[in-house]
Design a protein around this nucleic acid. Sequence first.
DNA 1: CGCCGATAGTTGAACGCTCAACAAAACCGG
DNA 2: CCGGTTTTGTTGAGCGTTCAACTATCGGCG
Lengths: 156, 156
Amino acid sequence: MGVMTRWLDPDEQRTWRAFLTASRALMETLDRELQHDAGMPHAYYEILVRLSEAPDRRLRMSELAELTGSSRSRLSHAAARLETSGWIRREDCPTDRRGQVAVLTDEGFATLAAAAPGHVEGVRRHLFDALSPAQVDQLRRISETLADHLTDSGPN
Amino acid sequence: MGVMTRWLDPDEQRTWRAFLTASRALMETLDRELQHDAGMPHAYYEILVRLSEAPDRRLRMSELAELTGSSRSRLSHAAARLETSGWIRREDCPTDRRGQVAVLTDEGFATLAAAAPGHVEGVRRHLFDALSPAQVDQLRRISETLADHLTDSGPN
DNA sequence: CGCCGATAGTTGAACGCTCAACAAAACCGG
DNA sequence: CCGGTTTTGTTGAGCGTTCAACTATCGGCG
């Protein structure tokens, strides 16, 4: 490690702060909207989405944590809450006695189905509608690059 | 409001999920790094930064909330904690008896100075180093567009 | 088989954020 | 100057996340 810090030049500074402002505002807005009209934070919505897409609407906790990019602990707490809300149910895994499978209940699916249109609408309004098609493409490439870069070295 | 939802097409879906993954991973990584080697979350770091840049290293709570994009409540809680850490101090505002000014203490400044190089290094490693100069420029434009779009209609 | 390190998942405490309610002072029209 | 509205900042409860510690099981090697 060198002794001199390479500070951000004014352009980088501007980029970094704009990114912080935008991504924070975006996530907070969507979180608030989802909390308001579905009674759950965005993170929980994502869990239900992943479950709804899985075969039989069921996933190992471990898989689910991977897919939603959350720690096992976070998922465990979230699952506890989702379970008392009646949106998921946890069962023992038949092939691994340590394991648990999270299952989306019918009630959970219904709640998700009710929340989805409004949320998608929000994502459109706050993200896609503001950008040109070219920018959407740029954002995809940038995000995929960053995601790769981060998950290479960044553990959970 | 129409009755039909315009769902995200596969490309939009992919973009949206990549963005979620990337921004979440980025923020979590930086947060963890900052928490680990400066003992504060990224949000608190930002508060100290803004104060350090202000004339006399002091700002009205209200200004500070604006600059850091946080609610008054959030800032109030944060300030309470930063004050017990000895990094800021709160004084009555001379021109408005409702007001408070947050002042960065010498100890706060020193802590910030100690944390900054490592954090900047992190931002470089996890963000700028992964992108081409063109992508950095694209990211700036995209972020500024989104930030404008969101702060137009999105209150706190 | 028997042990030992890895893996799966949970738990509780500490902490930060949100939301709604609140107090106090400032502003402003009449 | 008076009364209502707005602005400023704080507070407490409830919730979600982190981190470290812990239990239980699995997998593999001797």
